[in-house]
């Protein structure tokens, strides 16, 4: 059979996350998602979410699942990495919503990073001032753990990115579903921060809640990077699926339905170009892993 294959000019930067000797590769492909037959494919990386405080935004079904560990973030992280088979973890800094000093929060992140072998993604609140105050402290405290730290916004990149650079972490550049603004933030970052250490978060939506907008933005970013060789957008993309899905009423009312919702949303965004996807339920992570593996 005759085969019609495309070759693309652009390559997504390959990023190594985690401790020396235990690096996990993200990105590095020179083809469109699942087009491994046309070039070098990247392995999608699936992360399990946890929080550094007892989660208040998890529905009962999820609360129950993590009931034994959710009061101890270190135990929660170990369970995710060792029993539930996550290849990386995504720590949401729920503690920032309380009045806890930044050094205390940072020390907690370091204990989690030290307790597991898998790499850690660390998400602040998305509040430009609070994140600018806390994330640089986390960066300094966790030196050597090679975290993926974010979100870095156009309003606070000048405070967070230099600390991440100094202490050897990668960052998440977040923009609200707009390819032009994604490019803009990366151009600004690129003046002092290596773009091959940046992951783009164009924001995600759950199925039924605007998923098509998230899909379209990710797809356009990836096409610009790979097909049109736009150097400023050749970064891996992250989709925070768990956080979005488990606040929908469909998932909250019915956990098995939530698992399907999370898996379907995640797989859809992998098709659009996401390289890193976060989950809150281990079963949906397993299902997607089986699908893409």
């Amino acid at each position: 059979m005759e085969r019609f294959l495309d070759r693309y000019p652009g390559t997504i930067a390959g990023l190594g996350l985690g401790k020396e000797g235990k690096l996990l590769a993200v990105g590095g492909q020179n083809a469109l998602p699942f087009h491994g037959f046309e070039g070098r494919a990247a392995k999608p990386r699936l992360a399990l979410e946890l929080s550094d405080r007892e989660p208040v935004d998890y529905p009962a079904g999820l609360q129950e699942l993590y009931a034994g560990v959710s009061s101890c973030p270190v135990a929660w992280a170990k369970q995710g990495a060792q029993e539930l088979g996550a290849e990386l973890l995504c720590l949401n800094l729920g503690s920032m919503e309380q009045d806890i000093p930044a050094p205390t929060i940072a020390a907690g992140v370091r204990r989690i990073a030290e307790a597991v072998d898998v790499p850690l993604i660390v998400f602040g609140l998305g509040d430009k001032e609070k994140d600018a105050a806390v994330l640089p402290v986390v960066a300094a405290e966790c030196r050597g753990h090679n975290l993926l730290l974010g979100p870095v916004l156009k309003e606070n990149y000048q405070q967070i990115a230099p600390a991440a650079l100094e202490h050897g972490h990668a960052i998440i550049a977040q923009i609200p579903m707009d390819i032009n603004l994604a490019k803009d933030l990366n151009i600004r970052l690129g003046k002092f921060f290596p773009l091959e250490r940046v992951v783009i978060d164009p924001l995600s939506c759950a199925a039924g809640y605007g998923l098509e907008y998230a899909y379209s933005t990710m797809e356009r970013i990836r096409l610009a990077a790979v097909v049109h060789d736009d150097k400023s957008l050749q970064c891996p993309i992250i989709a925070r699926v768990g956080k979005e899905v488990w606040k929908t009423k469909e998932a909250m009312q019915d956990t098995p339905r939530g698992v399907l919702w999370e898996a379907a949303t995640a797989f859809t965004l992998l098709l659009a170009g996401a390289d890193l996807v976060t989950f809150r339920h281990p079963e949906s992570l397993r299902q997607v892993k089986a699908l893409v593996g």
């Binding site: 032009n180 603004l181 490019k183 151009i187 400023s232």
Partner: peptide, 11 residues
Amino acid sequence: RELYSPSWLEI
């Protein structure tokens, strides 16, 4: 020919 961004003059 080049994707627009608000900082298009800076690259």
